[in-house]
Structures are given as C-alpha cells and as structure tokens.
C-alpha cells in the first residue's frame, strides 16, 4: 500500500499575528513554524499506524519554498519514508491542489490523507480539490479510519451525531481529531531523517483562481473590569447598562 500525506507549514499557535504589504501578506518575521497539527497529529500518525500494522510506504508532499524543509524533515523524523517538495509558493487552493494531484497521478497512491484544514488560513479546500482532480472519492473531516483489505470504514462527526461511511480505495480523506494520538519524534527518527530522500520537484502549470485582497485583525478585546465583591449593585448596573446581558 502506498499512502500520501499532505504536509503544510503553519505558524505556531502562540505566534503573534501581524500583516505586511498593505495587509495582504502574513508577517513571518520572528514567527516559529510547525507542521499543521491536523496534518501531523492525525493524518501523518494514522498513516504511520497503518504502515506499522498493515505495511505501507508513507510518502509526504508539501507545496512550498525551501523554508518548508524543517517541517518536512520533522515529518520524516516521525516516520515518513520519502518526501517531495513542490518548489513553488502559493496561497491559492486550486493551484496547490493541482500540484499535489499532478504528483499523485505520477506516483499512484492507494490513500491520500490531508488535515481537515490548516490552522492559519483554514481553507479546508485542498482535499476535495485533489480528489476531484484525480477523480477519486473524497471523505472529509474523518475522526476514525479503519481498513480491511481495500475497503475503508470512516467515521465522520456530523451535527449532533456520527456518520459511518464505507468506501473502496483509492480515496482522499481529510483528517481531524480522533484519528490518532499525537506522537513525539525520537533521536533515532531524527537521525534516520537525515538520509531519507527529500526530492524537490518543479511545479506544473496550473491556474491560480483566487488572490487575497486584504487581511483584517479582529477588534482588540476590551479589558476586563473587576468589581469588588461587596459592590454587587455596581456589578448589576454594569451588566445591565454596559454589557446589556441582563
């Protein structure tokens, strides 16, 4: 079995968010980058579990510049076998999906995992687009993935309940919490990652369908007002007149 896991680089969750170039670009200065948690904790780890229990080769793909290499090395350290970096930088989901699909077409995968979204732009679009471009079935926001032969059983969380889907491989699945438990690499993995192949491939021609015109930060949160415990009247007055909740 050959599995492809799509890996993307995102700012650390504690990063301070700011923009440059007239609010059209995220300011990367001083920001720590990590593997998008949905890609790492759920998609990659579930792929590794399948490799360990059923036997599989796990390929990793990322679309991005050389600055994404630390992130892809970490994914190799966690246990991926081989990585591909498609050497182009884009914010457009269709363009990125076209690159992944072109690579996947060449390699032929039984299973393609993505995270349910990235925690920076939250586009949640790549998986569906890749599936469409490859003419494969797509199951989104999977919380559980089991495989028996070439038949997959996937649990999806839906409003107020759960949906259980069966689908034959090959399939594209976007993964969320529940699929697997986050892992921490170890020194052996880090050393092994040194010699694992990381191929840089040039992008294929594809259209960019969207462009960001501007980003906006949410309004700053108002400060907290502390009312002393013996001043209940004041508290009630403020809740009524200012917060307008009672």
């Amino acid at each position: 079995m050959k599995i492809l896991v799509c890996i993307s680089k995102t700012p650390d969750t504690t990063a301070k968010i700011a923009f440059t170039d007239n609010n059209t670009k995220f300011n990367e200065a001083g920001v720590q980058f990590i593997i998008n948690p949905y890609d790492e904790w759920y998609a990659l780890v579930r792929a590794l579990e399948l490799k360990e229990t059923l036997g599989a080769t796990v390929h990793l793909v990322t679309v991005g510049g050389a600055d994404t290499e630390p992130v892809i090395r970490k994914a190799l350290a966690l246990g991926g076998d081989e990585a591909f970096r498609i050497n182009t930088d884009s914010q457009d989901s269709f363009y990125i999906a076209s690159q992944i699909a072109a690579h996947a077409k060449q390699q032929g995968y039984d299973l393609i995992f993505t995270g349910k979204e990235t925690i920076d732009y939250n586009g949640s679009a790549i998986g569906g687009m890749v599936a469409e471009l490859l003419d494969l079935p797509y199951v989104s926001i999977a919380a559980k993935f089991e495989l028996s032969g070439t038949q997959a059983t996937i649990n999806r969380e839906i409003e107020g309940g759960e949906e259980i889907v069966t689908v034959a491989l090959p399939v594209v699945v976007s993964c969320q919490k529940g699929m697997a438990e986050a892992r921490i690499p170890n020194m052996r993995g880090i050393m092994a990652a040194r010699t694992k192949p990381l191929a840089v491939i040039e992008p294929v021609a594809a259209d960019s369908l969207t462009a960001v015109s501007t980003y906006e930060l949410p309004p700053a949160k108002a400060g907290v007002k502390l009312i002393s415990a013996d001043n209940v009247d004041e508290l009630v007055k403020l809740l009524h007149e200012e917060a307008k909740v009672i």
Partner: peptide, 10 residues
C-alpha cells in the same frame, strides 16, 4: 543546524 533545533524542540 535545522537538526539541532529539531532535537531541542523534540
């Protein structure tokens, strides 16, 4: 190196 940072962060 990138590897040192990975070791440290791990």
């Amino acid at each position: 190196t990138e590897e040192h940072l990975m070791v440290r962060d791990t």
